[in-house]
Simulated assay, not measured.
Amino acid sequence: MDSLPFFLNYIIPFLGIITVIVFVHEMGHYLVARWNGIAVDAFSIGFGPELFGWTDRHGTRWRVAAFPLGGYVKFTGDMNAASVPDPDFAATVAPDEARRLFANKSVWQRMAVVVAGPMANFIFTFLVLYAMLLGYGRLTLDPVVGQVLPDSPAAVAGLQEGDRFLTVDGFRIRGFEDIQRVVSTAPGREIAVTIERAGEIRVLSLVPETATTTTRFGRELKIGRLGVSRDVGANDIVTYRPGPIEAVGMTFEEIWFIIDRTLGFLADVFVGRADLDQVAGPVGMAQVSGEVATLGLLALVNLTALLSLNIGIVNLFPVPMLDGGHLLYYLFEAARGRPLSQKVQDVGYRIGFALVCTLMIFTLVNDLV
């Protein structure tokens, strides 16, 4: 593989996506911090040596660093980018400056700043998906069964030609593509299917069979299949354009689907049911970014929005070093009336750092293997 085409086709789209997501996330932290009167030393896209930057009139250094896989907002009085407070600095700072320190704000203000990053990712995803739905509508296929494969899960459950899907696994079905998307994320797991047959509503239970598909890069993915197809002779491909109000509901449905499937996959990981080969790291994300980039700018923007949502979800996990870990500390502080000891927090940060590093190494090895 030539290095220049690979860089242009895969690395550039990937870095563009990561930069947008990190900027949105950190801007959420920054804005809520400023609204609460917190002094900010640095707003960084990336880690490591600074490539270029500038200092604004508030004293915040806006910088782009050499290693772009992440970023941070560093508050005045923090020892590092993980928002670990520096007790020596807090003890010697002037009173006027002390009231602007993140560590000296109320626990509720600190919680608001922490939550603001993931919330910014959620809001960004909503706005992008909503705008694309209003602007371009949605191609959809009539969700009516055209054929049922013999001995398939659909046949065993009693699905018949002409059945119209209404819901699958609790998700509303607007088109045949919805069926494929929901079922593909539930291999080997029992799901409920609501159909309409001759004016009668029926609920069936079935277990999608597990099938294996291979991406162009050789990564094998396990997906679920029902064993049904639509009527290929029907001219039922239409562009559905919802109104502004309906588009709000459809966008929330899309976001909830991603959240539900993400949490479901993680639950499967904990019980040993998930296929860990499907966990992708930076290399896998670069490959996906390059593939999607070939479909055009709109597809790349859509991928950015979906990854932004996933980054927001992951950051809320109760792991020290992540936003969810900080939030967990502050919830303990709010319940106890005083913060956890610095020793306990330090131990938590070390555990969190080890977990994050382990995950990064695992995903990288997974990508390369």
Rank of each mutant, 00 (worst) to 15 (best):
Met1Phe: 11
Asp2Ala: 12
Asp2Thr: 10
Ile11Gly: 01
Ile12Asn: 01
Phe14Gly: 01
Leu31Ala: 05
Asp41Lys: 14
Phe43Gln: 08
Ser44Thr: 11
Gly46Tyr: 13
Arg61His: 10
Val73Phe: 14
Ala82Ile: 14
Pro85Cys: 07
Thr92Phe: 03
Pro95Phe: 08
Glu97Leu: 09
Glu97Trp: 10
Arg99Tyr: 06
Asn104Met: 09
Lys105Asn: 04
Trp108Phe: 11
Met111Gly: 13
Gly117Met: 04
Leu127Ile: 10
Ala131Ser: 15
Leu141Phe: 08
Val144Ala: 02
Asp151Met: 06
Asp163Gly: 04
Ile173Gly: 03
Arg189His: 05
Glu190Ala: 12
Val193Phe: 06
Val193His: 10
Glu196Pro: 12
Glu200Val: 13
Leu204His: 04
Leu206Gln: 00
Thr212Ile: 13
Thr212Gly: 12
Thr214Ser: 03
Arg219Glu: 03
Glu220Gly: 10
Ile223Thr: 04
Asp236Ser: 06
Val238Tyr: 11
Gly243Val: 08
Pro244Asn: 08
Ala247His: 07
Ala247Asp: 05
Val248Leu: 11
Thr251Cys: 06
Phe257Glu: 02
Ala267Ser: 08
Val269Cys: 14
Val271Cys: 02
Val279Tyr: 11
Val279Ile: 15
Gly281Asn: 06
Pro282Tyr: 07
Gln287Thr: 14
Val288His: 00
Ser289His: 05
Leu297Ser: 12
Leu300Asp: 00
Leu300Cys: 02
Ala305Phe: 02
Leu307Lys: 10
Leu309Arg: 03
Pro318His: 10
His326Phe: 07
Leu331Phe: 14
Ala334Thr: 04
Ala335Arg: 12
Arg338Trp: 01
Gly348Lys: 02
Tyr349Ile: 12
Ile351Gly: 02
Gly352Arg: 05
Ala354Cys: 14
Val365Cys: 06
